[in-house]
Every structure is written in structure tokens, then in C-alpha cells.
Amino acid sequence: MEIKDIENLAELAKIDLSQSEKESLSKDLESILGYIKQIEEVKTTKNEVTQGDNVWREDETTTDLFNREFILNQFPDSQDGFVKVKKIL
């Protein structure tokens, strides 16, 4: 895998990588992909879909209590009990 491919994936995954990590990741991914590529040889039929059943429930409000303080205390940045985020636009 080329370094520029790793850079593209890192951008998508929102992770900064050092040059040496890009190089080692490129090698690791080659090796991992080399291993997982073996599934290409498996003959499967597409109709083997046995996905789980949908689980439905009524959209009801419940009174499960969360500790508000605990949640607020987790905000890395906040103002007046609201989480503060960076400008998006």
C-alpha cells in the first residue's frame, strides 16, 4: 500500500500519523491484507441471508435516572450546562 493511500485513510479516520508510522502502517496493512485476501477464493452464494429479526419497542419515555452532574463533568469544554463545540462553518 502506498504512503498516499495511508494518508487518505488517516484523513478519513481523522487521525494524524507521523512519517515513520505511515511507513510501518503501510507494511502492516500489506501483511494483514495479504492474510485476509484468502476470502476471495471462497465460493459463496449471495442468498444465504439470515439476518437477525428486527426488535421493536414502543417509543415511550421512561424515568431512568442519569446523574446530570456526572454527564456535565465529562464535557471537555462547556458553558452554562451546555457542551461547547468549535465553529462548524
Binding site: 495511508i6 500519523l17 496493512l29
Partner: peptide, 8 residues
């Protein structure tokens, strides 16, 4: 990081 990149 390795698995997030691989998953991506």
C-alpha cells in the same frame, strides 16, 4: 490506530 485505519 492500526485497526481504525484497516477498518476505514
Amino acid at each position: 490506530r492500526r485497526r481504525v485505519i484497516l477498518g476505514t
